[in-house]
Design a binder for these strands. Sequence first.
DNA 1: AACTCATATTCAAAAAATCGAATATGAGAA
DNA 2: TTCTCATATTCGATTTTTTGAATATGAGTT
Lengths: 136, 136
Amino acid sequence: MKKNSGSNRYDLELLFSALADRTRLRLLNLMGDTEVCVCFFVEVLGVPQPKVSRHLAYLRKAGVVEARREGKWMHYRIIPPGDERAARVFMEVRAWLAEEDQMREDRSKLMNVCCSPIVPLRLMGAPKPTRLAPEG
Amino acid sequence: MKKNSGSNRYDLELLFSALADRTRLRLLNLMGDTEVCVCFFVEVLGVPQPKVSRHLAYLRKAGVVEARREGKWMHYRIIPPGDERAARVFMEVRAWLAEEDQMREDRSKLMNVCCSPIVPLRLMGAPKPTRLAPEG
DNA sequence: AACTCATATTCAAAAAATCGAATATGAGAA
DNA sequence: TTCTCATATTCGATTTTTTGAATATGAGTT
């Protein structure tokens, strides 16, 4: 991955590189405005766990998500960029994302997986996605 | 370069891949709302001509710029995406771009090069950047 | 036709990104 | 401590992207 040059406030290419990959876009879309446990990403996207982990690390290094540990589980959430311009772009991108068919499907799959009474083996006892407090 | 999958209206990754490169961002920034001749890109960015040409081709394939021939010169201009979401993101990105130091420098260098009475050899007789008509 | 000039393309090498497979880490349970 | 489970990281291989150098194209000029 590219390094953040740090010359200006926010690295444009770093952000766009982060957004230039389907798996990472799907991860961001799933986070939406909730904090999501890694195991749900693996379940919903149906990709190998190390792959999910690697892409989450990429997003972390790009500064767009943050992780929180809870026991053995890790929760990821989006952190909007501090820079105003960057934040606006990022917001628009997420709104755009949300309209794509695959992204819609992913979100409804997440809904099913976490709200259904029949829980997949993999997710027994996993902490469900929790809506984040509106910023303020 | 990635291919446009065509499933949905506009390919997100294709756009972000196009934006995930310094040279291409600088080219877009220089175009702003004017049509610019390739020779000016070469002069202002100070990079080899084939490199400029290749990146312009990339932007063309990504559908964000269009070329117009005028004799032996080629003019490039930005074409905002047809999709409303995409257009908004793209607009925000350009506004953000314009605030970066390097981008500012590039633009002022372009100003100097095309308005100064002392024209570099390379640009003798080259058609100057022309402001595009406001869309409508 | 031949020549010049601006731009585009090809080519092979270098650099970077991505991947699956295996392994490491680190927290809780026993 | 050892064991298990969720997640992270490393490894080497594959694929993709980017590059400089050389060459091709294509329009005007002579």
